[in-house]
Design a protein around this nucleic acid. Sequence first.
DNA 1: AGTCGATTTAAGGTAGCTGTAAGGTTTTCG
DNA 2: CGAAAACCTTACAGCTACCTTAAATCGACT
Lengths: 218, 218
Amino acid sequence: MMIERFLRKEGFFRIYLAADSASALSSCRTDKPDIAILDVMLPDGDGFALLSSIRQFSDMPVLFVSARGEDEDRLLGLGLGADDYMVKPFLPRELVLRLTAILKRVYSSPVADRLSSFRLGEQIVRLDSAVVERDQAELPLTAKEHAILVKLYESRNRIVTSDALCQAVWGDDSYGYENTCMVHIRRIREKIEPDPSNPVYLLTVRGLGYKLLVKEHS
Amino acid sequence: MMIERFLRKEGFFRIYLAADSASALSSCRTDKPDIAILDVMLPDGDGFALLSSIRQFSDMPVLFVSARGEDEDRLLGLGLGADDYMVKPFLPRELVLRLTAILKRVYSSPVADRLSSFRLGEQIVRLDSAVVERDQAELPLTAKEHAILVKLYESRNRIVTSDALCQAVWGDDSYGYENTCMVHIRRIREKIEPDPSNPVYLLTVRGLGYKLLVKEHS
DNA sequence: AGTCGATTTAAGGTAGCTGTAAGGTTTTCG
DNA sequence: CGAAAACCTTACAGCTACCTTAAATCGACT
């Protein structure tokens, strides 16, 4: 199939082709692909019914492809929870772009792709190499410190509740780590704050949680 | 504008309309909308350039709308990191479905408890970071103040009874906190009202409760 | 087994949020 | 008009949530 070749060339791999609805459904269930491309017209039924079946057990991304471009079809497809709906004929390149757009939203945590480094005044925090640059020196970050900073940075300029923070670092059964977390916060402050006792970047919001202030450069 | 009315009816609120690229850009920066709808053809430039500017500082969702449906345009828009590209004319209903599809992917990710920010005249109340921006300063909100504002914002422009408010903040056995609540309301007013003694945003409705006035128009 | 760094526990200390209370003002209603 | 009810305003004391430090424990590597 043309499209498949193209997708493969674009870096998509692990591509499954299904001959009929039943095999497509079971493939979605067992292979758990990252995204599904469904044709509305299928030899044994329509893609809408198939999507309904998929939605019974999965919220996976789905893109419809169809020769039928009627308004009702598009509304129906999108209304069933599809992520996009393309009408044939279309450029393979556009398909790739749309797939990429969807995958970007679904599988990258909001800021994971730019999990590189950020600046706090004079200091530069490098999450990818787990160090803090300050005064021409490099302070290493420990594993826990790093995990906490990642979580805080993901929600920078917003409050992260102590619960959410503990859960992100110690897992679901994180009850009882609040104190431990506080100690780590203190250590982090000693590395990123000019004056750890009067924080200006990693603030505590009494009764709510912590907040990492990062000025976005224009 | 037609579309705006339709979106509002569909439950979208806090809608900003920008007259030109510059104001759109600054609105994206300061108002931090959940999603942006850009027209490719703008009075002072094109939407592509605008998206590039936005992508400098934000990964926010963007949907293009255009009278130009050429292949190159669509490829360009999607290639720049847009989430979707719709060609006019289109059904308002489809716009809503596509917006919803994008928002579902972006904000159902772990982070978002979907607390937003809103504007009260000159002030901007940011619930996600628990601050009130006014006169180039940031007034922090305490935990209780924050909880009260969340409840009031959930029922903005409608009356919230004192009972309901207390229950939302202090739990089910909240009898006897009416006075306490009043004190907190006063403190909130000192942060969000131009003149706390003559409130215009957080109104008391004698005998019934309180009401937070939030103009959705910009 | 021994060492060293990372992590956790524990205990004492403190700032500032929260609630209480008392007196004032405005509205309602007999 | 007068009194009661509803709400406002202010100040202050207590306590909770958080800080800080030091010591104990864990874990990896030799």
